[in-house]
Each structure stands twice: as structure tokens, then as C-alpha cells.
Design a protein around this nucleic acid. Structure first.
Lengths: 352, 352
DNA sequence: TGTCAACACGCAAACGTTTTCGTTAAGGAT
DNA sequence: ATCCTTAACGAAAACGTTTGCGTGTTGACA
């Protein structure tokens, strides 16, 4: 037999005031231990408030203080090891510093990115942390970022950024990271290294390709267009990976001498390893692989994949710190910082 | 040379009113196309509002309407394929129905779960969607859920639920799902099937073990304790997987006849496959594997892993629909539903 | 010319806080 | 008895909306 349910709705200052026959202001002051209020009333009010489990209404506070203590995060995708790590980092420091996190997913779509930002920019949050969607990068339409900043709402961008917008940024040195990786392959003795990358409009893809070229140049090797596979991202949506497999298979068959592969993300590397294995190549004896983004796949693949770690959580933490610091210093003069998180080459079994 | 920056701070009804020399109420009504206002002023106000890109302040609306159009999601962990899929589902329908999503991470800790809920329950959100942390399940302290519900804030629980709390729930039939999986192994000819599971306080672990037992019983086989490996979750935190590997290795070595393995999550299955391979067994010829939770690992492992899909995104969608429906019908009489999402056995290369 | 709709708009309350600025009464000093 | 200080509290504004209701003006009609 369930006990009778007594709904204790949230109690407000007004109700406490009425009950105790004092004014609202008095209750408020008493709860904040103001010296203006006599010891007696203070105790009385505090006891009553505790009994009824009073908590100030956040919305009312937000309205009054004109800040919400909430930060908005807009990312292209959440079912993604890197982005979820970033969120974890953001949430960690946000929480520690008394902020909440509200997430919006752009799903790589320009429209959803705009809509989401508008939904949040109308008072719901104090600032944004975001990574730009592919469609936005492709269309190069950044007016929503500009407007948001113009309205006095700070933005911190991470990973997928764009130089055109003036704001705090947290990135990795993509070209340096991939240069390191490719250099590793070279120093491991690779003579013919292929790269599997994305179309150039994805800024990070472009930069990582650049790092590949830089490493080759250091070794006085000239790049061969045949070894550069630019994958059309549209084709690799979720489950249509066969076409990607075929492309990679074509790459290997046309260039039998390939003995090293650098891929700009984890999945491409894993799939390339699978194709290579099916073609009878031994990893890492015949061919070595390095990927980008240290996800769960890299760690548990067979063989485990050597990879460039982006330190997603650290990026998130840093981004949140930048934003909250910015919010604290109540719009004094504006200066924007770009933080570069160091990448790290995690060596596993796919390289010698 | 950058153009001079003109800060267009967000404009309010009051400012429009002052500028156009009408009252605040008139502006509000004009913008909402009230028949009370003359065509002239309506047009004038609307034009002005559009020019200055007026948007009603969400916080003020929340305070007035006493609802925030925001739902709070508390999950144990976000760097996790299943949970991030659920969030994606939640976000999808929430957004479609005009709601925002604010996430809190309990990090499997009781205290953080409580803190997070308190932070959000003070007016910031209209309702919760959550999955209970392991520590909470272990301590069996559910007062924070009860209090929240008592205050009139609806909760929808998913996956990790507890019967003691009266609220909407979205779950899968864990025992049925695992029974199906084990039955599949049996019908594939397995004679000695091991299970790798968790300690019993994790409700889903317990249920999945039960399904394993049920399947055996259907085939008139009696369970052997030697074949049931209950992993202590504490030991498998992130990177300390060696001990798990050793335990599994011990399992295989002690029971040479094992020809089938069912694991209650993806990672355990992947690791078990790795151990088996190192021991020289052929998959699926010598030994077959099935995991639980359809993550990215299952799909891209070699061999790819047959697995019981939980349909995380669908769970999220359903949870959000339950919650929002509940919110719409303005506390009429309360009735709680438990939705069971069907699992699906996704057959891949780790089974015959 | 007086009456009455209809029209167009302003006022004010309400949501729940915090905080500034009164206001009242008591008490001490003169 | 008068003045002043001080302690203790109340009133009200403000944050930005929405909305019910009151009010003034206009025009039509008798």
C-alpha cells in the first residue's frame, strides 16, 4: 500500500514570506545572512526554508542577473569519439565552475547550425563553444557567427575553425601532427607512403594533407598524385563504406609498392588496414599504418593502430576555461586567444 | 582594415516601445499580430523589430510561462557509443518539438548525480531523462529521484532503471535479447558456451545473465559456474584491461571445450576475441562470439562481431516523446508507461 | 446633439529574485 | 520632553514578457 502522495511543489520566497508574516525582501535577506535582519528572524526563516527545502529559482535569477550560468555547445555530431570527449572536457570544467552545458547538434547541416544557435542565443546561454559543420565550411557563410559575436555573446571555436571569425579558438596543430606521423613512417623505412584524406574544404583535412607533403619534402621526396586519395565525404555516410573500400583497393592495386599509409581519421585507417589484409599484406611488416584521432577503434583494432591523438578532452577543458574566463571579466577590452593543443603520436602495433 | 564594430546588443520590447513611442504591451501585441492593434502600428512595429532583429528573451518567457522548454538529461558517461546514440535520439525529437537539451554527466558517481539533478531541478528544466549511475544502483539510494518526482517534475528513465521508482521508463528486454543471442549460438551448434558478464548490481548485467541461463534451459543444458565469468567493473576502468584479458585467458585455458562466448557488452566481446585469437583459435570455426550493444567496435572489428543491438537512438527518441507528451498534458492524472524497445540480433562474421 | 459601439491603445499585474532606499520604533543622550 | 542614532524591517524597482481590462477617441445613428 503506497503512502498518500503529498506533492511538495517548489516553494518560493513569497510563500515563505506569507507563511511567516514578513516581507519577501526580509526572507531573501535572511536567507543570505544579511546583518540587516535580526538573529531571531534569520533563524526562523532559515529553519522554515530548510524544512521546505527552498531553492532559489534559477530562471528568476537568470533574468535578474542577466546571465544564465549556462554555456551552449554546438557540435556536428555526438556519436563520435572525439566530439564526445570534448564534451566531457567541457562539462568537467563547466560544472566545476558552476556552469551548466546545453548541447545542440548541427548534424553537419548549415541550417540546423543556424537554427540551433538562434534558439540558444535568445537569452538561454551566456556563450558558445562550437565546432563548425561541414556544410557551413563548404558554403563559407559565417554570418550567424558574426551576428552572435556582434550581439556581445562570446564564442569559442574548437577543431573546425575559420580564420575569418575573430574569437577565441582551440585547435591542434594539424599539419604538424600529421607531419610527425608521416615522418615516423619515413624514419621507419617507408619508401612509398599513401595518404587517405578528405576534400579540401574541410579545413583539418587540408592541413593534414599539408603536413604529409611537408614531411615528404623534408625527406626530399616528391609527392605523387597517385598516392593521394581524396575521399568524398558524402559517399562515406554511416554505412556506405563499400565504395570507400573499393577506392582504397584501387589505390593499393595501382601502386603495388605502397609500404605506408597515413589516414586523416581513424575510420579510414581501419578500413584501409582491412583492405590491405584482404589483399594479403602483412601489417606492419609489409605495410605500416597511422591514423588520426585516438578513438576506441584504434585501441582495439587488430593490429592496434598507431595514431595521432588530438586530446579531445583537453581541448574541451581548455575551450570551457577560455569561455568562462571571458565571461567573468565582464566585457572589458576584447582580446582573442588561439590555444594550440599538442598532439601526441601513440605508437601501437600497426607500425614497426 | 576592419570596419568599425557596431555592437548591436539584443533589443527588448521596452526599447522598441520607447523608440516608436508606444507602450510595451502594444509592441508585444503588434508582434503577435493581435487584432487589437491597428494595421498601421502593427506594420510599423514589425518592420522595426525585423530591422533590429528582435527575438523574445527566452528567460523572461520561461519565468512567465513557468516552463523552460528544456529537458535535462543525466547520463553516467558520454564517451560511450550507446549513450551518445541515446542523446542523439533525444536531441532529435526534442528539437523537432521545440525543446532544448541540457546534459549532465554523473560519471557513474552518486554524488555527482545528485548534485547535477539539484542544479537543474531549480527551474532550469521541465523534466528529466536519465540513466542511473552504477554507484547509485549499488547504494540503492533513490531519494533524489523520489523528491524530484514529488516536486512535480517528471522523470523518464532509460536502460538502467529501478522498479522502486514510479515513472515512465524505456528499456529493452535484456533477458530476451541475450536469450536470443545465446539461442543463436546453440542453434549454430555450440556445445559449451561461456558468458562474460558484470557483477549483479548492474541491473542489465543481471538480466542478461538470466537470458543466458534461460536459453541453456531451453536446450536442456545445465549451466556450469566455471563458464560464467563475472567481471568486476572497477578493474576495467578505461585502460586497465590487462587484468580482464588475463581473466578471460584463464577462462579459456580452464575450459578447453568452449566453442561459444556471449559477452554482455561490446568491449568484453572484442577483448575475448583477441584473447582467443592469440590462443590460436579460429573465429568462427572453432569458437563463435556474440556481444551486446551495437557499437562502432562491433562493426569494424576483425572479424566483425555479431551483436545484440539496443537501438540506442530509438530509445532516446522514445524517451523524449514520453517526457514531452507528459509535459504537454499539464499534470492531469498520472499514469506511467514502460516502453520496451525490441532488440535485434545483427549477424556478422563472428558467428557461423 | 446625445448615445453607444467599435476601435486602438495604455496600464498594471504576474512570474521569482535581489537590492536600494525608505520608514518605523526603540533607546540613549541631552 | 526633544533630538538623534540605530536596529529591523517593508516597499518598490528591476530583469523582459504576456494579457486582461480599463479608457479615450472616433464615427454612426437616432
Amino acid at each position: 500500500m503506497a503512502p498518500p502522495i503529498i506533492m511538495k511543489k517548489k516553494i518560493t520566497l513569497k510563500q515563505i514570506a506569507r507563511e511567516l508574516d514578513v516581507s519577501i525582501g526580509t526572507v531573501s535577506k535572511a536567507l543570505r545572512d544579511s546583518a540587516e535582519i535580526s538573529e531571531d528572524t534569520r533563524k526562523k526563516v532559515q529553519a522554515f526554508a530548510k524544512l521546505y527545502n527552498y531553492r532559489p529559482n534559477n530562471i528568476a535569477l537568470s533574468l535578474k542577473n542577466r546571465k544564465t550560468k549556462t554555456i551552449g555547445v554546438i557540435i556536428p555530431e555526438i556519436v563520435h569519439h572525439f566530439f564526445s570527449k570534448v564534451i566531457r572536457g567541457i562539462e568537467l570544467v563547466a560544472n566545476k565552475r558552476g556552469y551548466n552545458v546545453i548541447v545542440g547538434l548541427s548534424n553537419e547541416s548549415f541550417d540546423k547550425e543556424v537554427i540551433n544557435m538562434q534558439m540558444l542565443a535568445n537569452g538561454s546561454i551566456d556563450g558558445f563553444i562550437l565546432s563548425i559543420s561541414k556544410e557551413t565550411l563548404q558554403q563559407q557563410d559565417y554570418h550567424h557567427f558574426k551576428e552572435t559575436i556582434n550581439q556581445g555573446m562570446p564564442i569559442v571555436m574548437f577543431d573546425r575553425i575559420v580564420n575569418e571569425i575573430d574569437c577565441d579558438k582551440v585547435i591542434i596543430d594539424d599539419s604538424k601532427g600529421s607531419k610527425n606521423a608521416v615522418t615516423k613512417l619515413l624514419s621507419n623505412g617507408c619508401k612509398s607512403i599513401a595518404i587517405i584524406t578528405t576534400k579540401d574544404y574541410v579545413s583539418v583535412g587540408k592541413l593534414r594533407t599539408q603536413g604529409y607533403l611537408d614531411a615528404l619534402e623534408d625527406y626530399k621526396m616528391s609527392p605523387e598524385t597517385d598516392l593521394i586519395l581524396k575521399v568524398d565525404d558524402e559517399l562515406v555516410s554511416e554505412d556506405h563504406l563499400e565504395s570507400l573500400e573499393r577506392e582504397i583497393e584501387g589505390l593499393f592495386k595501382k601502386n603495388k609498392k605502397i609500404d605506408g599509409v597515413f589516414a586523416v581519421n581513424e575510420l579510414y585507417a581501419i578500413i584501409a588496414m582491412k583492405v590491405a589484409r584482404n589483399l594479403g599484406m602483412k601489417i606492419p611488416e609489409d605495410i605500416q599504418f597511422i591514423g588520426f584521432t585516438d578513438g576506441v577503434l584504434s585501441k582495439h583494432a587488430t593490429p592496434s593502430l598507431t595514431t595521432v591523438s588530438q586530446h579531445g578532452q583537453q581541448m574541451g577543458e581548455k575551450a570551457a576555461e577560455l569561455l568562462i574566463d571571458n565571461l567573468k571579466r565582464e566585457d572589458q577590452e576584447e582580446f582573442y586567444r588561439t590555444i594550440i593543443i599538442e598532439t601526441e603520436l601513440i605508437e601501437r602495433d600497426s607500425t614497426k
